[in-house]
């Protein structure tokens, strides 16, 4: 890929990092008139290590859990300065910084109605600190704090329904996206910033190190999550399901066997059945199935 003036190459992300690609797509879609507040996490660490920065837009990192509040302050300042109509404000963070420790700040931001786009880069664990389980880690996953063992199948809870939590705030736009579908992600970011008010997009971003897949398999893995129904792509506008990506559902095994983090489940039909049920529920709920 050629160099981007808004997210420059030379950062220190791992090879095949889905978050690096998605972050670049987000800022490019938003354009140069954007200010970003970033939570602590992999993205912040690999993109902004003094004295270098990958960011070609104004960018600020404060703490792990407060990007939504920092962005609220930026937005308030822009309103005061009379510049809000020409500048987009994005708050972004990982799944841990969003769904766990930063949930309160995010909820406040959504409830107060700030004109901010919040992006959650969902790599389904606390990757920056060494692949610990978060509230968005999927059922059955092997992480360093949800290891399988005689008494455990791995992470014993399903993903926290973050998009629904965001939606419950009555905000005008909620969407999921995936690093495996770059054009879809770009379109959603563009649409989100055209809408006034709080917006939430959760982007599924594979992490080769944490998920244990080959670095060149990033796109394949990301696509499989969507194609199995485990990571449904949808858009809610003003509380109504406006769009979803329809699929010819593949069995979840195809996704599970693509990554080391699910390896312990592959000879456990009972657990695979449970995960298939999660996919089936998504397929039903969002009406994902393409009719032949």
């Amino acid at each position: 890929m050629e160099n981007s003036p808004l997210f420059k190459s030379g950062h220190t992300a791992c090879a095949g990092c889905g978050q690096a690609i998605a972050a670049r797509l987000v800022v490019e879609a938003a354009g140069a008139n954007t200010i970003i507040a970033n939570n602590t996490g992999c993205l912040e660490v690999f993109s902004a290590k003094y004295p270098e920065t990958a960011w070609g837009v104004p960018w600020i990192h404060s703490l792990f859990e407060n990007s939504a509040a920092v962005a609220s302050g930026i937005e308030a300042a822009l309103i005061y300065l009379g510049k809000k109509d020409t500048i987009n404000v994005i708050a972004q963070g990982g799944d841990g910084g969003t769904a766990d420790i930063g949930l309160q700040a995010l909820s406040g931001m959504l409830e107060r109605g700030h004109d901010i786009l919040y992006i959650c880069f969902d790599n389904e664990a606390y990757e920056n600190t060494g692949i610990q389980r978060s509230g968005l880690t999927p059922y059955g996953t092997n992480t360093t704090t949800s290891p399988p063992g005689k008494q455990s199948i791995g992470n014993f809870r399903p993903k926290k329904p973050m998009p629904e939590i965001a939606l419950a705030h009555g905000i005008p736009y909620v969407a999921t996206a995936s690093a495996g579908f770059p054009q879809d992600l770009t379109r959603k970011v563009k649409k989100a910033i055209s809408i006034k008010g709080p917006k939430y997009i959760q982007v599924h971003v594979p992490c080769p190190l944490g998920w244990r897949h080959e670095t060149n398999q990033m796109l394949t893995v990301a696509k499989l999550a969507v194609e199995t129904g485990l990571y449904p792509l949808f858009e809610y506008e003003n509380g109504v399901l406006a769009n979803r990506k329809q699929i010819v559902p593949k069995p979840v095994q195809e996704y599970l066997k693509s990554q080391g983090r699910f390896k312990h489940l592959l000879d456990n039909p009972e657990e695979i059945k449970k995960i298939q049920e999660i996919a089936d529920n998504n397929i039903k709920k969002y009406n994902l199935k393409l009719e032949a």
Partner: peptide, 28 residues
Amino acid sequence: LKAQFVNVESEHSAASVVLGASATGVRV
């Protein structure tokens, strides 16, 4: 007073809001 008064959900966010606004070049 022509100011934005941001009613936050916690002191952590109150301090973070003024941090973000100050970084944007506004007195807080």
